[in-house]
Amino acid sequence: MLNPQWLRTFTTLAEVRHFTRSADRLGLTQAAVSQHVRHLEAELGPLLIRRPRQLELTPAGEALLAYAQEVAAAEQRLRLQLSESDAEHGEISLISPGSIGLVLYPALLDIQQASPGLSVRHRFAPDREVVDAILGNRYELGLTSSKPDDPRLTARLFAEEPLELVVPAGYEAHAWADLVRLGFIDHPDGQAMAGRLLSRRFPGHPGIRSLPMRGFSNQVGLILEPVARGLGFTVLPRYARQAFARQEAISVIECGRPVVDKLWLIHRAEWPLSSRARQVAETLAARLQRLAP
């Protein structure tokens, strides 16, 4: 492993391109700076082309500079991750299903604006990928629609997400024939969600596959766009509907007793959450409670 002080010296020299000024910036003597460079060149070969009043990096020097910058960035990430007692500095990492993510991501940005020392990293993903990401320590917090039974994970109920029948604004859906006339806008979970919900509103219906399919989108933020344009209806979780910008262009049809999915907050069980993750989880849960009707 290369000496970290030598790397810092070389990085500064590559930026300043002057031995004396580099020494001043680092609080070292010029002889110490030269010695650090000689140690590196003894291991890696020529790193600098020395000309009067000019220093130029060799290809090996450019490669070492890129490596040193990666090491510095990795050290900074490590410091952020280990600063557990600081709720206002460090990284917030969350991976969640798309529907809830449409609501949570803007809320995360609100938190970051209030505490600029925080860095937000959020990813939309299905349940299996969420679990894998938490187990692989790529994210600190995750949300899943089913409670995992892996002993390496801690899971607690975070929110409930009712399904909703969404139609164009002003459209009445009193009978199955009304849905047939309108047609279905499908999405990756659309038929499964519609089957669960519509059996409450239209018991004995002939099945989702009997409906005309008017469109499909795998982007949760776009599923309601064709509905808003009068091209069909769909069934979505409430948070996806609430995140849609043009609420005046859509309507929700009452379907009786709600069909509700549970959302579970998960993280590794072997170590505690950082203070910033705990605070963010509480803030997000409160935001969702305010959205509930």
Rank of each mutant, 00 (worst) to 15 (best):
A32Y: 01
V33P: 01
S34C: 09
H36I: 01
H36S: 15
H36C: 14
H39F: 10
H39K: 08
H39T: 12
E41W: 05
A42I: 04
A42S: 15
E43R: 13
L44I: 06
P46W: 02
P46I: 01
P46N: 04
L47E: 00
L47C: 05
L47I: 03
L48N: 07
L48T: 02
I49V: 14
I49R: 12
R51A: 12
R53Y: 12
E56S: 12
L57E: 01
T58S: 07
A60D: 14
G61P: 01
E62V: 13
A63F: 01
L64I: 07
L65T: 03
Y67R: 13
A68I: 06
A68R: 04
A68V: 02
Q69N: 10
Q69T: 09
V71R: 07
A72L: 15
A74M: 10
L78F: 09
R79Q: 15
L80G: 12
S83E: 09
D86Y: 04
A87G: 06
E88P: 03
E88I: 00
S93Q: 03
L94M: 03
L94K: 01
L94Q: 01
I95A: 00
S96M: 14
P97K: 05
P97G: 15
G98P: 02
G98I: 01
G98W: 00
S99W: 00
I100K: 01
I100L: 14
L104N: 01
Y105D: 12
Y105M: 15
L109T: 10
I111G: 00
I111D: 08
Q112S: 06
Q113N: 12
S115Q: 14
S115C: 11
S115I: 04
S115D: 09
P116M: 11
G117M: 07
V120P: 03
H122D: 07
H122I: 10
F124S: 03
A125S: 11
